[in-house]
């Protein structure tokens, strides 16, 4: 019963995707755009297979940067969100500043980071952190601050200590927000790493991208773009699985709803 609507829901986007690919193919087939400008889907696939070992080598570097950055962001987001939730003064002081940091265009500060931190992984990881920690902090903070005041009151009446309130009420109720933030952040993390690599370094998907662009190997460019898309999708799926694993009760809620 449950599977059926799922499959029909997937038919629509699949149809759209296939027609878009078909359009692309036709455009290259009738040479509406010269083939050195826009390679055909087949060329891209061949380039992908042909340069697969290279792609994997660079992907490993980019993914490492993305994961380290993401890990640091998660720790940072938890710490900042927790102290901002605990101390109202800090919330008032930091919230606007956090919002402002988000208006700084990452592409603009990437060269500065390279200048300051060198050509190694440090500037890339820093950029990933800058891009990722904000959506997670805000989502976590939203979750922490939206706890039911009546529930908190009851916990206090039961004699709960501050850490117990966090353990039993606040942290669990902030998890849905956290995962919403994490889903956005994983895709930011890869893009962040790639952008940072454009501006300097010896390896990584961004470096590879710059290299193939300079040699006008557009088919390889597209291959990298698709690889980035695939990686992002896989990571988002992983977050989804992790979310289901950590929040079994949310599953139950959904089933409950579909029963009505």
């Amino acid at each position: 019963m449950k599977k059926l609507p799922n499959i029909t829901a997937k038919i629509y986007p699949a149809t759209l995707l296939i027609s878009l690919l078909l359009c692309w193919y036709l455009i290259t087939k009738i040479e509406l755009v010269p083939s050195f400008m826009l390679p055909s889907p087949g060329d891209v696939l061949m380039a992908f297979i042909g340069s697969f070992p290279e792609l994997m080598y660079h992907a490993k570097i980019s993914l490492t940067e993305a994961f380290v950055g993401l890990g640091i962001s998660i720790v940072l987001a938890f710490l900042i969100a927790l102290i901002m939730d605990r101390f109202e003064v800090l919330y008032k002081a930091m919230h606007p500043v956090l919002v402002v940091t988000q208006t700084i265009p990452t592409v603009a500060i990437a060269p500065l980071l390279v200048l300051w931190l060198g050509y190694d992984m440090a500037p890339k990881i820093t950029l990933v952190v800058l891009a990722c920690f904000f959506p997670m902090t805000i989502a976590l903070l939203g979750g922490l601050r939206s706890s039911d005041p009546d529930a908190l009151n009851l916990m206090r009446a039961m004699g709960a200590k501050q850490w117990q309130i966090y353990k039993y009420i606040k942290l669990p109720s902030s998890l849905p927000g956290f995962f919403a933030g994490l889903r956005i952040s994983v895709s930011y993390s890869i893009v962040g790493a790639v952008i940072a690599e454009w501006l300097g370094g010896n390896s990584g998907l961004g470096v590879y991208m710059t290299r193939v662009r300079k040699s006008y190997a557009f088919d390889k460019m597209f291959a990298v773009i698709f690889l980035i898309i695939i990686l992002s999708l896989i990571l988002m799926k992983c977050v989804e699985l992790l979310e289901k694993k950590t929040m079994p009760w949310a599953q139950v809620d959904q089933e409950q709803e579909s029963n009505f």
């Binding site: 039911d148 009546d150 529930a151 009851l154 039993y168 009420i169 669990p172 109720s173 998890l175 009760w249």
Partner: peptide, 8 residues
């Protein structure tokens, strides 16, 4: 309000 925690 029963205030049961949804995650427990």
């Amino acid at each position: 309000k029963d205030l049961l925690q949804p995650h427990l």
